[in-house]
């Protein structure tokens, strides 16, 4: 090629990779290739996609059993941030939030809808109060589960003396039901030590 404008292609990386692939056995060049590979390709290790168990919707093969959900019970939470991150992860929710008993969202994580999120806090508190009026003998409401056509909102009502917080889950995966006791236990045990 004599044309000075001839396009050039940098194929060093490709050739190194090919060398390691074709020879079959790693050679010194294959090592170089790996080093170079690490330079040119950035691994997104912390962003690895959730496994099939946490992503799939309800269907024959995805209907899950609680022991298939990869889960470690963490240390007690010291902040709402930790609490929300864990709750969101194990329930596969799109987002989580915490509402105080005045109806204000005091913390949130994940993909919150652009509109209407301010109302959710107030409406949840309002619902708790309305629902608790059904019968005083039923005691305090522990969970709210609102299954709308397009979205699901679930919330654990965590009492602290006279007040309470609602830990809300937006669009949790169906298996969240099986995790309710675990969530309750973990949140209640953590509450005294949370700031």
């Amino acid at each position: 090629m004599t044309d000075p404008n001839a396009p050039s292609y940098d194929l060093d990386q490709a050739q190194l990779l090919l060398h390691s692939l074709i020879s079959g056995i790693p050679k010194p060049s294959a090592m170089a290739c790996q080093e170079q590979g690490e330079l040119l390709f950035t691994r997104l290790q912390r962003l690895t996609a959730p496994s099939i168990t946490s992503l799939a919707g309800p269907s024959a093969r995805t209907h899950q059993n609680i022991d298939q959900i990869p889960m470690e019970v963490p240390e007690l939470f010291t902040s709402w941030e930790d609490c929300m991150a864990w709750s969101m992860e194990i329930t596969g929710s799109a987002s989580t939030f915490v509402v105080d008993s005045q109806g204000f969202i005091i913390a949130s994580q994940g993909d919150l809808p652009e509109r209407g999120i301010e109302c959710i806090g107030a409406e949840l508190v309002c619902s708790v109060e309305t629902l608790e009026r059904i019968d005083a003998d039923y005691g305090k409401l522990a969970w709210i589960d609102l299954d709308f056509e397009n979205r699901r909102i679930a919330g654990f009502v965590a009492p602290t003396g006279e007040e309470y917080f609602i830990v809300g889950l937006l669009s949790p995966k169906p298996h969240y039901h099986q995790l309710r006791t675990l969530l309750e236990r973990q949140i209640m045990a953590s509450l005294p030590g949370m700031d």
Partner: peptide, 26 residues
């Protein structure tokens, strides 16, 4: 041609991590 390394990289990764028997025919 400019993007061929991406495919090779994935083949190499799968061979090294998941399937040592995988061979590139070419």
């Amino acid at each position: 041609l400019r993007t061929i390394s991406q495919t090779l990289r994935v083949i190499q990764h799968v061979r090294d991590q998941e399937n040592p028997g995988l061979q590139l025919l070419g």
